[in-house]
C-alpha cells in the first residue's frame, strides 16, 4: 500500500511536527508515503479571492501531477484537503472552468482528469488500515494521555473527510481509545479556531481559541489533539499569551500521539516543536507498563 503525500506549505514550516509524525506513523505501519514531486501551493484560501481561475489552476496542477502517480493523495493539512477537494468538485461541476484550467495546464504538458481521491490521514488510518491493525502494532502505552480530540471545521465540512456526523465526529476518540488513552468529552470539537482571523482580527480569533482551550482544561484534558496545522498553531500560540494567567496545555497532532504508541521516539514525532512540554510520563513499552516512570523529553519550555 502506497500513498502520494502532499505536505503543503505548512508541513514544511510551522507544521513540521505534523510532517515528521505523519511520516513516522506510516513507516511504523509499513505503509508507503511518497511525497509528490514538484508540488506547489494548494492555492489556499487567499488566492481564490484574488483571481479564481488562477487559483484553481494552481491547485489543479497538483492534482494533475498526483494523477500520474496512480496513488491516492494524502493531504494532512485541513486547508489543503479542503482546497484540493474544492478544486476537484468545481472543475467536475463546471466544464468551462475545467477547459480553461486544463488549457493552461496543457502548456506544461499536464491535464487534470479529476480522478485522484484526496484524503485525510485520519480517514486513511481508520478506513484503509483499520483500528485493529493499528492497535495490534502498538508497542508503547499512551494511557497517561487524556486528550481532547479537536477536529476543527474543514475536516468535517463541506467535504467530510470522515463518514460520520459532522456535528459530532468520533473517529479520533475511537482511535485513541483503541490505543488505551482515555479521551475527555469535548463538545466544541468541530468549532472554529479562528483560522486566518488570527492575522486580521486577532481578538476574535483569540477569544475562539481561549474557549477551545478552556473547555479542554476544565474537562481535565492534558493535551489537545488536532488534525490541522493552523488549528495547532493558533491554539499553541495561546500558550505564549496571557502573562502566565492562562493554563498551558500541549497542542499535539494526532499523528504524534499515534507515533508514540507505535514506538516512535519523542524526537521522531517532533514533540520538541511544541511550545509547551508534554507533561506526562513518557510512553513505556506496553509490556512494561507499570514500571518506573520517565519524563518525556521535548518541548521548548
Amino acid at each position: 500500500m502506497t500513498y502520494t503525500y502532499y505536505p503543503g506549505c505548512s508541513l514544511h514550516a510551522t507544521g513540521v511536527a505534523y510532517d515528521k509524525s505523519t511520516k513516522a506513523v506510516f513507516e511504523k505501519l509499513g505503509v508507503g508515503l511518497q511525497e509528490l514531486e514538484d508540488w506547489n501551493c494548494c492555492g489556499a484560501t487567499s488566492y481564490t479571492s484574488v483571481k479564481k481561475t488562477v487559483a484553481y489552476a494552481i491547485s489543479a496542477r497538483n492534482l494533475a501531477l498526483a494523477e500520474k502517480t496512480g496513488h491516492d493523495v494524502i493531504a494532512p493539512c485541513s486547508a489543503c484537503f479542503y482546497v484540493l477537494n474544492k478544486t476537484k468538485t468545481r472543475m467536475t461541476e463546471q466544464p468551462e472552468l475545467r477547459e480553461q484550467v486544463n488549457a493552461s495546464l496543457a502548456e506544461a504538458g499536464l491535464e487534470a482528469k479529476m480522478t485522484v481521491p484526496v484524503r485525510k490521514p485520519l480517514e486513511v488510518l481508520i478506513n484503509d488500515i483499520g483500528l485493529d491493525t493499528i492497535a495490534s502494532l502498538q508497542t508503547h502505552s499512551i494511557s497517561d494521555f487524556r486528550p481532547a480530540c479537536y477536529y476543527g471545521c474543514q475536516i468535517v465540512r463541506p467535504y467530510g473527510a470522515i463518514d460520520e456526523d459532522p456535528e459530532n465526529p468520533v473517529s479520533m476518540e475511537r482511535l485513541f481509545e483503541a490505543l488505551g488513552a482515555e479521551c475527555v468529552d469535548y463538545p466544541p470539537k468541530v468549532r472554529c479556531c479562528g483560522g486566518m482571523l488570527i492575522a486580521t482580527f486577532e481578538e476574535v480569533a483569540t477569544q475562539l481559541c481561549e474557549d477551545l482551550v478552556d473547555w479542554a482544561v476544565e474537562r481535565g484534558a492534558n493535551c489537545i489533539v488536532t488534525v490541522c496545522p493552523l488549528c495547532q498553531a493558533n491554539l499553541d500560540l495561546l500558550n505564549l499569551s496571557g502573562n502566565g494567567t492562562r493554563t498551558k496545555i500541549p497542542i499535539l497532532y494526532f499523528t504524534q500521539l499515534i507515533g508514540l504508541a507505535l514506538g516512535s521516539s519523542p524526537e521522531e514525532v517532533g514533540l520538541e516543536h511544541g511550545l509547551v512540554p508534554v507533561n506526562v510520563e513518557a510512553p513505556r513499552l506496553v509490556a512494561e507498563a507499570g514500571t518506573a516512570p520517565a519524563t518525556a523529553r521535548g518541548g521548548a519550555a
Binding site: D185, P187, P188, D214, W215, E218, R219
Partner: peptide
C-alpha cells in the same frame, strides 16, 4: 445553536 454540558470545575 447547540446545547452542551457545562463545566463542572467552577
Amino acid at each position: 445553536a447547540e446545547i452542551v454540558p457545562s463545566l463542572s470545575s467552577n
